[in-house]
Amino acid sequence: MKNSSVIQKLINAPYILWSVLFVIAPLIMVIYYAFTDRTGAFTLDNVKSIGDYLSTFILSVGYGAVATLICLIIAYPFAYFLAHTGASFQRMSVMLVMLPMWMSFLIRTYSWMTILGDSGVINSFLGRFGIEPLSMLNTPGAVILGMVYNFLPYMILPIYTVMAKMDGSLIEAAQDLGCGKLHCVKKVILPLSVPGIVSGITMVFVPSVSTFYITQKLGGGQINLIGDVIEGQFQTANNYNLGAALSLLLMVMILICLGVLGYFTDSEDEGGVLI
């Protein structure tokens, strides 16, 4: 017994070390910076000046929500369709969904610049027909597109997982009790896929709200979301303290969102499909 507990500790050690070094320590640093000024003295000024960025926060949440909603609308029917096709087609499609994730996020976003740009792929194609270049880059649409494109797999996969695991006899039972096709979706398939939807929403919403790269590259600096502000504080303004305070607020906000979502799934349920 004693031996096994020593082994267990050894096995756990790297994980604990990792968490302390890369999760807990940075978190403490963020909190420290947030409540101090440049000289290291305790202050609440950083937290107080958060109010100036309220509109940015709201804008970020808005962008995140729109991107998440679009992902959900695309992913749900797709996942349903995928889960009900042949096994080999399913494997192939899941592979294709994951394929972009093997490539760097930065490269994928960059490539959209060359597609959407004024002299990009689309505009040069349209130009052949004498159509004036459309300005697609540096618009809210481009930012939303970038978010949807990059995070869509994170919505599809958890929903697909629940759909594929769904007990077919529950759907049969519902039909047996008088459910037509459409009713079945509403009364059985939708409630059963809630854990997948919640996972998907979380995994799309959180990175969408906090992204700065997508807004920089596809928004051309015209659209400032909270991620851009935080990045700016650290990189250009060199104001670690304000940056940390904003990060802290973002974290708290995301935790609240997760808490609200978690309310919709039973704690013991298979809520954590992929998270």
């Binding site: 006899s169 529950l170 039972a173 047996d176 459910c179 037509g180």
Partner: peptide, 15 residues
């Protein structure tokens, strides 16, 4: 769903 026949499933299939 249009048949006056109902099934009791092997693994119950409760919601």
């Amino acid at each position: 769903y249009k048949r006056q026949v109902n099934t009791i499933f092997q693994r119950y299939a409760l919601f």
